[in-house]
Design a protein around this nucleic acid. Structure first.
Length: 581
RNA sequence: GCACCCAUAGCUCAGCUGGAUAGAGCGUCGCCCUCCGAAGGCGAAGGCCUCAGGUUCGAAUCCUGAUGGGUGCGCCA
């Protein structure tokens, strides 16, 4: 149930009626007519800009339109007042039963209250994490992982058919480096003293892989040249790393639908096919790129390469798809991979990258635009850095990983729920400060706690009600007389609840799950406010001694808050708590 | 040099397809527990939304330029 959608429909109906009776000219476009909560609550419950948007095309004064519309809307039972204000806003106040109805709807629909059909079942592919399979995930990946997963859940909640996908970069030079690093660990397992030169991976996590290989192959590869063992060691090592990564993701409650291997694109003609598609569109040519201005690579020399004419699709320069030795650049399999996504029939693609990959956004969009003939939109969300602290001091690195803090370091210390929520308390493109001590603080300074506390308080009310012998079962609350919720403070909470379905659509449309986290904080704040007013005004307490009917109505409101918090936390991948400890 | 991201209260940040007097938390100051959990709440002070133009009924929001910060820029993915 989306109250804003309902009222917008009422406004549009009224406008159509005005057209029918000649109060407005025909042929007007109502697309820009909006019904929104006013920024200042003193202006009313909802406002529409209809009169201002239509004034120009209708060649009428905004206030004239607004007044005619106001008269019409005021006739609706849901609307108590409709006043024209400012340059032509129409401010609406809604009757108490409307807000009481929101509470009823939240209870009746449960976590589905807020679910939207906006996505219309469109297939969306969300690619995220996609870390190189060369070691455990670190904090940067953690943010991308949480963001991608929450965005996926959000889109699913908004009616999209979502596929979570991970692209395994197992086809490039870095997995050869991995294999060599593992070989050193293999030698070490045979008692040799080894050193890890620059450019290899010295992390502890490869020790057991080396040991496993020593058990499997004995000393067969000791002293052998690289071509004897490279393929085998690479396969074993990348498999082991992907197991590690899957476990890391699982620790955050993330389950991918598809793991797509870069390597699987080689030798199957898929890269060639993708480039052939571009070729047939005249977008592939042999040429020489200009050196980048202002930053001349030391070993620059003009060189003819196979290039993708990405400038035809909004890029700044054309991009090479083949290296000078004839091998593919990393970009070529990326093109093939996105081509594969397109041919799998997705209506929209989303890539979640770290901010350090910002330079690839335009070329990737250019590729998708060219391959799909502009039909499949690609949105690329960049996640900014996470800065780690403990009590305000920068946090040190993990030994195990070599030189970075791992996802495990974070989850083991603060838990999955806290990690996830905190990662979503900033917009994706804003840097995030993560303080191990502060995120565990049990105070209102900590948004995780604050939201959880609101949920726990509702549970507490339910437990107290049970002790008092009040029936708070689903049926009892569904039958509660919600007209007893007539205090402005209670209706304010209901107003906040009414925003939830609208917020879901905004967050889904903008691909910004952090909005859910901020909303939950605001809802919790409304609830805590109401709770505390019970200190001064006994009639606002949720349990009214000797008055079961009123208690049930108030408990219904509390339960509606819990329902929305649960739904919101569910999207974020956070489990609501029953009580604080 | 070019591209992308960012610039909002002392600090950290929200701000809806452009809407009315720009919000929250922290910090500062003042208040509220014989009361379902005060692990909380209420209030006050605090602003040239970096700057300059433009678009329009209306701009923190869109466009152009400037300034300041971050990221990246052919044979690494």
């Amino acid at each position: 149930m989306n109250l804003f959608t309902e009222l917008r429909a009422l406004v549009i109906d009224s406008l159509n009626a005005m057209v029918a009776e000649g109060a407005l000219p025909g042929g007007l476009d109502f697309a820009n007519v909006a019904v929104e909560p006013p920024r200042d609550a003193a202006h009313g419950d909802m406002a529409t800009n209809a009169a201002m948007v239509l004034a120009k095309p209708a060649k009428m004064k905004p206030r004239d339109i607004a007044e005619a519309l106001a008269a019409r809307l005021a006739a609706d039972a849901r609307i108590t007042t409709a006043e024209v204000a400012g340059p032509g806003f129409l401010n609406l106040r809604l009757a108490a039963p409307v807000w009481q109805g929101v509470v009823g709807a939240a209870l009746a629909e449960g976590v589905a209250f807020g679910r939207s059909v906006m996505g219309q079942g469109q297939k969306v592919n969300v690619e995220f994490v996609s870390a190189n399979p060369t070691g455990p995930l670190h904090v940067g990946h953690t943010r991308g992982a949480v963001f991608g997963d929450a965005l996926s859940s959000l889109l699913a909640y908004a009616g999209y058919d979502v596929t979570r996908e991970y692209y395994i970069n197992d086809g490039g030079a870095q997995v050869d480096v991995l294999a060599r690093s593992v070989y050193l660990r293999y030698l070490e397992a045979h008692g040799e003293a080894v050193e890890f030169p620059d450019g290899t991976y010295p992390g502890d996590y490869l020790i057991e892989v080396g040991e496993a290989l020593a058990r499997t192959y004995g000393d067969r590869y000791v002293g052998q040249s690289e071509d004897a063992w490279l393929d085998e060691f690479r396969n074993v090592a990348t498999d082991a790393m992907m197991d590690l990564i899957r476990d890391d993701l699982k620790a955050l409650g993330i389950e991918m639908d598809v793991f797509f291997s870069e390597k699987s694109l080689y030798g199957t003609g898929q890269i060639e096919a993708a480039l052939q598609d571009l070729q047939s569109k005249g977008l592939i040519y042999e040429g020489v790129l200009e050196p980048p201005k202002g930053k001349m690579p030391e070993d620059w020399e003009p060189r003819e390469q196979t290039l993708f004419r990405s400038t035809m699709h909004g890029d700044d320069v054309d991009r090479p798809v083949k290296k000078s030795d004839g091998a593919w650049t990393y970009f070529a399999p990326d093109i093939a991979y996105h081509y594969d996504k397109i041919t799998r029939g997705f209506d929209a693609l989303i890539d979640v990258f770290g901010a350090d990959h910002g330079g690839y956004v335009k070329r990737m969009k250019a590729a998708v635009s060219a391959l799909s003939n502009g039909k499949v939109p690609l949105d690329i969300k960049l996640t900014q850095l996470v800065r780690l602290f403990r009590n305000g001091e920068p946090f040190k690195m993990s030994k195990r990983a070599g030189n970075f803090v791992t996802l495990r370091d974070v989850v083991d210390q603060v838990g999955s729920d806290v990690t996830r929520f905190v990662m979503l308390t900033r917009k994706n493109d804003a840097p995030l400060d993560f303080d191990f001590a502060r995120v565990l603080e049990q105070s209102k300074d900590n948004p995780v706690f604050y939201v959880q506390y609101a949920h726990a308080r509702v549970r507490s009310v339910l437990r107290k009600a049970a002790e008092a012998g009040i029936d708070t079962g689903e049926a009892a609350l569904a039958g509660a007389d919600l007209s007893k919720l007539d205090h402005p403070a209670e209706l304010d909470v209901a107003r906040k609840l009414a925003e939830w379905p609208r917020l879901v659509e905004i967050a889904a449309r903008t691909h910004e799950p952090h909005r859910v986290a901020f909303y939950l904080y605001e809802l919790a704040s409304e609830f805590h406010g109401l709770w505390n007013r019970g200190n001064e005004l006994p009639e606002l307490r949720f349990l009214q001694e000797g008055d079961v009917a009123t208690s049930q109505a108030k408990i219904a409101l509390a339960q509606a808050v819990a329902v929305v918090i649960s739904a919101g936390l569910g999207i974020l991948g956070v489990t609501p708590v029953e009580e604080m400890r």
